[in-house]
């Protein structure tokens, strides 16, 4: 670029030419740097607009009222577009879940690591094999061989802690982040 600029009619004296060129180069590079920074900042809104919008984020977490759920009852709520199973487990189910040897589990995980309060099991009701919704929420449903949930699509069996016991699913039913706001309200997400 400097070559074409040197199509000048009058050549400058040596020192002045070098100083001038240095000044021009500094001006050039600082302008380029400022321009690059400005362009990056200008591009950001176009990329950020694809991120989840405010109305989507508003539904990123939900609060669920647990007071109506009886022992041995399950409900399904929708969270971030997916079903979440919330079950108030019976004493037998809790004992059974806690008594399983880790060696028997394809995806070893202690029951204590999957619940905050043993009575309440909260997990995403999407089979970890290929995404169907397992049966077991309603009283008439098949609960599989381990008394928990059964996925009809390819025959995955989950136990009373929602852990995979038999079938093609590789991992346990995922537990979302949740916290108890009080004894009867849980906030998921």
């Amino acid at each position: 670029m400097s070559e074409s600029a040197q199509n000048a009619d009058q050549p400058m004296s040596g020192n002045a030419e070098i100083d001038d060129k240095t000044r021009r180069d500094f001006l050039l590079w600082s302008t380029v740097a400022v321009g690059a920074a400005g362009t990056a900042l200008a591009v950001w809104p176009f990329i950020d607009q694809m991120n989840p919008a405010a109305d989507t984020l508003a539904l990123a977490s939900i609060e669920v009222d647990l007071s109506a759920i009886e022992v041995g009852q399950s409900i399904t709520v929708t969270w971030r577009g997916k079903p979440v199973f919330i079950r108030r487990r019976t004493e037998e189910e809790i004992t059974e879940a806690e008594g399983v040897a880790l060696g028997d589990l394809p995806d070893p995980q202690k029951d204590a690591d999957r619940v905050q309060k043993p009575e309440w099991l909260v997990m995403v009701g999407v089979c970890t094999h290929l995404g169907c919704i397992p049966l077991g929420q309603k009283s008439g449903d098949s609960k599989g061989e381990f008394g928990g949930w059964f996925c009809p699509c390819h025959g995955s069996h989950y136990d009373t802690s929602g852990r995979i016991r038999k079938g093609p699913a590789p991992t346990n039913l995922p537990v979302p982040g949740y916290e108890f706001l009080d004894d009867t309200t849980v906030k998921i997400g």
Binding site: P45, F46, D48, Q49, N51, A53, A54, D55, T56
Partner: peptide, 13 residues
């Protein structure tokens, strides 16, 4: 209207 209110920088675009 949603673009103006909820989409990130939607009002700007």
């Amino acid at each position: 209207d949603r673009i103006m209110r909820d989409v990130n920088f939607g009002w700007l675009l």
